[in-house]
Amino acid sequence: MPTDTATRASAQIGEQTLLDMFWIMLLSRRLDERSWMLHRQGKIAFHISAMGHEAAQVAAAFAIHRGVDYVHPYYRDLALVLAVGVTPTDFMMSLYGKQADLSSGGRQMPSHFSNRSLHIVSGSAPVATQVPQAAGLAFAIKYKQRCGLVDPNDTTQPRLALTCLGEGATSQGEWHEGMNWAGVHQLPFICLVQNNIYAISVPVQSQMAVEHVADRASAYGVKGVIVDGNDLLAMYDVMADAVQRAYSGEGATLVEAKTYRPVPHSSDDDDRSYRSRDEVEAWKRKDPIVRFQRYLTDEGLLDPAKIDAYEARARAEVDRAQADAEAAPLPAAEDALGDVYAPVEG
């Protein structure tokens, strides 16, 4: 990783792209806040939040070929999937369990993101199940390239698989087996661990005997990197390097983004039982959006008027998404019976 500021990958990001990244982070946050509110109002059954993770997720998304490279996300990846192309309306449809929910047609709980046309793979709720599957996606990429089914330089084809999970999920055997395949086969694979210190209530010290998840990378023969997940530009640098490694056949990377979830695990959680308000407040002062907004202001790309305009746009988009979802039809009851088996041809 170049330490010289000018040669950092993030130094090559154009001004409009920096503002686009800020916009997605802000949109995700406002959509997230509205979701919490809708839950408190009793309008939706469940919400699970991406708050605090926006920089890690948006940087990861902008570093890959969005909509083309495979993404196998986890339930906290709202900002990531928005950056890949999911819309606030798509998300609201899933919150309300509406027929137009693109992820699952209302079959899954919210935040089980899926969009095949964007190469976002549907996930489940048992954690880390997506990791060995993402290794399989990466295996397929390499297989197709080596067996002549695709041109390795064809940028319209997926060239890597990115998967995400929390640090608690790395205790699962599924994580280990996925990482092992990625290492053995030197796959174009990026595992982004969003370490927010708590798996619901259980702190990281009860999860692992090593200090960092990334300490385990050497056990799999992959590169491990630790990064401040609340620093969008540092995050982008690390991800850009991991992407380059994947694209150039150098193999897999384990990225550990240190971050924090300033809200309860989900709308069904109360975090007051397992952490102090002082701790939460201290982390809120390191909010990744505030931090990036300050950077862009210092760089002259944002000013109060521009920020107000972004806020107004975010509010309008969230309002419209909510209105669209509330007006949309629920699934037919018998849709419960659909899509058990795909039809067999011939």
Binding site: Y70, H72, V121, T129, V131, P132, Q133, A134, A135, G136, L137, A138, F139, A140, I141, Y143, K144, P158, A161, G173, E174, E177, G178, N180, W181, V184
Partner: peptide, 20 residues
């Protein structure tokens, strides 16, 4: 494969999702 059945299935599944 590595000697690990979970990943034989899961990696296979990922490859199937990618149309292998």
């Amino acid at each position: 494969s590595p000697l690990a059945e979970l990943s034989i299935v899961a990696v296979g599944m990922g490859a199937a999702l990618a149309d292998l």
